[in-house]
Design a protein around this nucleic acid. Structure first.
Length: 434
RNA sequence: GGAGGAGUGGCCGAGUGGUCUAAGGCAGCGGUUUUGAAAACCGCCGAGGGUGCAAGCCCUCCGAAGGUUCGAAUCCUUUCUCCUCCGCCA
C-alpha cells in the first residue's frame, strides 16, 4: 500500500510513476486527492470536539461527588449533545478512513525509477544468460512425453481425482521432486544463510491482504469453506509461501540489528488460475497445485535493491548447480506484479518449445507490503520504528525445475540424466526406462 | 464438537463506571556516587495519528469489532487467540 500522506503531498509525481505501469493504474488514484484533504479537515474537527468532551467529563467527575445535583443534571443534558456530535464526527471519519484505505489497497506499487519502460512482456530486458542450449542429435520431446515414457508423470489419473491442471508423480518422478526440495533447502540454509521455515498452508484473508493478493485478486485463490458459506473467517490455501512467511513478522517491530533476515520455506502452492484457459494446457507448467521453495528477506529500505541482486543470485545458484541453461530478464514497468517495485524473472530453457520459460520471479516490494502488514524495525535501540522492505523469490518452482531436467537432460534412448549435484539426493545418476 | 477460564505497555502484574493523565515491579537507557564494578538513589523508558521550524501541545489505542452512558480497561453483545477438562482424531 502506498503512503497516503506521501500521495497527498506528491499527487502528480505519484500519478506519473503509476502511469509507467498503465493508464488504469494512474486512474485508480484519481479520487485520492479529494478524500485525503477532506480527511485532514475532519480529523481536525473531530479531535477538537474530543478534547472538549474529555475536559468536560473530568469536571463531571468532580461535580458528581459534590452536593449540587441540579447543576450536574443540567450539565449532563448539555454534554449529551456534545457527545452525540463527537460520535457523528467519529463515524464520518471512520467512513472516510475506510474509503481512503479501500482506494489505496487497490493501487499498485510504484515502479522503481531503475525499472525499464514498457507495457508488455515484449518490453522486458534480458540482463544475462547462463550456459547455452544443448544440441541434440534427435528431436527433443516435450516433458509430458518424456515423463509418460518413463512412467513418472501421470495426468490422466490426476484428472480422475481432481480434474484438469493436476498431476501425479510416480516412482522416480516423486523421488526427483523430493530430491529437488531437499537440495534447494540445503543450499539455501547451509550456504546462503537462510533460516528454514515450515509455515501453515492455510491462512486468513488478513495475511493475503498484507502481501497484496487481497482484496484485488480473490479470483486467483482457493478459498475454503466450513459449515457456513458466508463465514468471514474462512481460510485460503496459500498461492505462494511468500504469504505466510512475509506475514510472520506482521504487526511486529524488529530489532534493526537483526536485519537482514532471510527465510526459506518449502510449501505447496495453490492457484485457481482463473482466466488462464488456453495457456499451457498440457504438462506441468501451469497447475492448480505445485511445489515451490521460496526465499523471503526483510531488509532496511536503503538496501532493497542490493538485497534483490543477492536474493536473485541465490535463486540462480540453484540452476547453476543443476547445470541448467537459463537467462535473467528484468520486467518492464508495465509487466510488474501488483505489489512489486522491481522484478527479475529467471527463465529456463525448454528445448521442446525452443523457448525460455519462467522458473523464478524475484522481487523487491520496498515498503509496500510492510505498510499493509505493519512490518517495522527499529534502526537504533531508541529510534522510531520504520517500515522494513520485503523481498521474495522462488528458488525454485519445483515442478518447473523437474520439467527443465526432463527436457534439457533427455537422452536419445529415452532416459534422463540426473545433474551431478542432485545425485546424492536422488540416489542414482539417471532415470531409466521402466 | 461440548463445558469452563483467561487476554492490560518489551516482560510480569494491579485495576469491577469518574484526576486511568493505567499503580507497582523486572528488563533497558541516562545520571549521581565509586579507582572500576556492584549496590543505593534520581530521571527517562509503547504504538499510530494531527499540529508546529522546534520544544511541545492535542487525539486514538487495555486482543478485535459494535453497543450502553455525560463519562468505559471496567457493564452488555459479537468475534479472535490462548489455557484446562470432555469427546473425536494422527
Amino acid at each position: 500500500m502506498l503512503d497516503g500522506r506521501h500521495v497527498a503531498e506528491h499527487l502528480e509525481e505519484t500519478k506519473a510513476a503509476l502511469r509507467r505501469r498503465s493508464e488504469e493504474a494512474a486512474r485508480a488514484l484519481e479520487p485520492a486527492e479529494g478524500l485525503l484533504s477532506k480527511r485532514r479537515v475532519l480529523i481536525h474537527a473531530t479531535e477538537k470536539l474530543q478534547a472538549e468532551r474529555n475536559n468536560a467529563s473530568q469536571e463531571m467527575g468532580k461535580l458528581a461527588k459534590g452536593p449540587d445535583k441540579a447543576a450536574f443534571e443540567a450539565r449532563r443534558g448539555e454534554l449529551k449533545t456534545l457527545s452525540d456530535e463527537v460520535k457523528k464526527h467519529e463515524a464520518e471519519l471512520a467512513e472516510l478512513e475506510r474509503a481512503v484505505e479501500d482506494l489505496l489497497l487497490g493501487v499498485p506499487n510504484l515502479p522503481h525509477p531503475s525499472v525499464p519502460d514498457g507495457t508488455t512482456e515484449a518490453d522486458n530486458v534480458v540482463r544475462r544468460t547462463f550456459g547455452e542450449a544443448k544440441s541434440y542429435d534427435f528431436e527433443p520431446k516435450p516433458h509430458w512425453d518424456v515423463g509418460a515414457a518413463l512412467g513418472v508423470l501421470d495426468f490422466e489419473r490426476a484428472a480422475k481425482l481432481s480434474g484438469a491442471r493436476f498431476s501425479v508423480l510416480w516412482g522416480a518422478g516423486a523421488r526427483l521432486s523430493r530430491a529437488l526440495i531437499g537440495f534447494m533447502l540445503d543450499l539455501h540454509t547451509k550456504e546462503h544463510g537462510y533460516t528454514e521455515v515450515l509455515p501453515p498452508f492455510l491462512v486468513r484473508g488478513e495475511a493475503l491482504r498484507g502481501t497484496g493478493q487481497l482484496p484485488k485478486f480473490e479470483a486467483d485463490l482457493f478459498k475454503t469453506q466450513r459449515s457456513d458459506p458466508e463465514d468471514p473467517s474462512a481460510l485460503y490455501l496459500i498461492p505462494t509461501a511468500e504469504v505466510p512467511v512475509t506475514n510472520l513478522h506482521g504487526d511486529e517491530i524488529l530489532d534493526g540489528a537483526t536485519l537482514p533476515r532471510a527465510y526459506t520455506a518449502y510449501t505447496p502452492c495453490f492457484r485457481s488460475e482463473a482466466g488462464s484457459y488456453g495457456k499451457d494446457v498440457r504438462g506441468l507448467i501451469r497447475q492448480h497445485q505445485f511445489d515451490k521453495v521460496e526465499l523471503v528477506r526483510f531488509v532496511e529500505p536503503s538496501q532493497a535493491l542490493a538485497q534483490l541482486d543477492l536474493l536473485c543470485s541465490h535463486a540462480e545458484e540453484v540452476l547453476k548447480r543443476l547445470e541448467l541453461h537459463y537467462r535473467v530478464v528484468e520486467l518492464c514497468a508495465g509487466d510488474l506484479g501488483f505489489g512489486a517495485e522491481k522484478t527479475f524473472d529467471i527463465e529456463v530453457w525448454l528445448p521442446s518449445q525452443k523457448a525460455y520459460r519462467e522458473i523464478s520471479s524475484c522481487s523487491s516490494f520496498g515498503d509496500y507490503q510492510a505498510r499493509r502488514a505493519k512490518i517495522r524495525y527499529r534502526p537504533e535501540p531508541k529510534a522510531k520504528p520504520r517500515l522494513a522492505a520485503t523481498l521474495n523469490g522462488s528458488a525454485l518452482a519445483v515442478g518447473r525445475t523437474l520439467v527443465a531436467i526432463l527436457e534439457q537432460n533427455q537422452c536419445s534412448d529415452g532416459t534422463v540424466s540426473i545433474p551431478k549435484a542432485l545425485v546424492p539426493y536422488f540416489g542414482a545418476d539417471n532415470i531409466p526406462l521402466p
